[in-house]
Design a protein around this nucleic acid. Structure first.
Length: 330
DNA sequence: TACCGTAAATTCCTGAGAAC
DNA sequence: GTTCTCAGGAATTTACGGTA
């Protein structure tokens, strides 16, 4: 446990609050936000003062430069701390939930097959890098993410032993929220990966089972921010994204694209999407289908298509019917 | 140019409470 | 009692500046 790193009038309480949360598994992100709060409180509170409504309002105002989602995080941590502090000082003002701003989820970009092919083909040329395999790793990783729907962090963490091409199976270890799962590979993806493995071997990268499947130029593991940087450069070069500072398609949208294209394929083949959703949920590593349902909203085309299909089947224009699909068996 | 560190932004798991 | 919605919280991803 770190020694006390807070300096405001509530330093002791911030420290004990952090220690209780860190002990239950919360990590350095909380510490950063608490330090931010501590710096704010240095100018606000004298010894013996408490957090009043005015203080919380000024704290909220001090986060004006941040995005809404970040402000919500900052305010919700202040709220948790105030709840904790109120046990020791009943004068403490607790921010009511209704005063917190609402979150909004931006619409993901759904990549087309043609766009993904352009991105893969636009990999930084080998002559610019001391590592001839680098453009191959980049292009393979892009195609791999689009074909499997994995998170980029999951992909770069793969070791050689985690990719079993003979059984067409990936082992995804200790991913988000500590989950481990197996992911099956499509035959065409397996074929592409086999070609990549051959190129990787020819480039004399380590063949140890624990060696990274996607190595960096130095032989270590491809660092996610490094891959992100190159990916964004390629998007800008292709005109798929604006200059830095502007929002646009992201790496994570490859995962959205995979999910949406899978749903579209099931829909076109006449499958019941609600019956298939748990399969997709398990594949993507979600613990419940509610986390997967957001992909149903990802494309207007899909929603229009699903709505039309329900109308054709039931001919009852009821919103309730859309919320409660017929019972199905897996 | 690649890599690393860090702050900010986003994703998604989970539980509480409202609605039915 | 069950279903649904929403928000809190924890974790991952993105973006960018600094450094070798």
């Amino acid at each position: 446990m770190a020694t006390c790193c807070f300096r405001s009038a509530l330093a002791f309480r911030l420290q004990s609050f952090w220690e209780t949360r860190a002990a239950s598994g919360r990590g350095p992100v909380l510490l950063k936000v608490l330090r931010y709060l501590d710096r704010f409180l240095i100018g606000e509170l004298q010894p013996g003062d408490t957090i009043t409504r005015e203080v919380t309002e000024r704290y909220f105002k001090s986060t004006e430069h941040l995005a809404p989602g970040t402000r919500i995080n900052r305010m919700s941590i202040l709220r948790q701390f105030c709840l904790y502090q109120s046990h020791f000082d009943p004068r403490t003002c607790i921010v009511h939930r209704m005063f917190l701003p609402r979150r909004n989820r931006p619409m993901p970009h759904i990549y087309t097959v043609a766009e993904v092919r352009r991105i893969m083909a636009a990999a930084p040329p080998a002559e610019r890098s001391p590592d001839p395999l680098r453009p191959v790793v980049f292009a393979t990783l892009v195609g791999f993410l689009y074909a499997t729907g994995l998170r980029v962090g999951e992909a770069v963490k793969l070791n050689l032993a985690d990719v079993d091409l003979s059984r067409r199976l990936l082992l995804i270890r200790q991913t988000k929220f500590g989950k481990t799962r197996y992911v099956p590979l499509a035959p065409c993806t397996t074929k592409q990966l086999a070609a990549y493995v051959a190129q990787r071997r020819a480039a004399r990268f380590s063949q140890e089972p624990t060696a990274p499947f996607f190595p960096s130029s130095l032989g270590g593991r491809y660092h996610v921010p490094s891959f992100t940087t190159v990916f964004l450069q390629v998007l800008r070069r292709l005109g798929l994204r604006g200059p830095p500072g502007q929002r646009g398609p992201r790496i994570h949208d490859l995962r959205h694209s995979f999910a949406v294209s899978r749903l579209m394929a099931w829909h076109k083949s006449g499958d019941n999407l609600f019956a298939k959703l748990p399969l997709l949920s398990t594949y993507l590593g979600h613990s419940t289908v509610t986390g997967t349902e957001i992909y149903l909203h990802a494309t207007a085309e899909l929603m229009e298509s699903v709505g039309q299909r329900f109308h054709e089947h039931f001919a009852v224009p009821s919103a309730r019917l859309l919320c409660q699909p017929p019972t199905f068996h897996l």
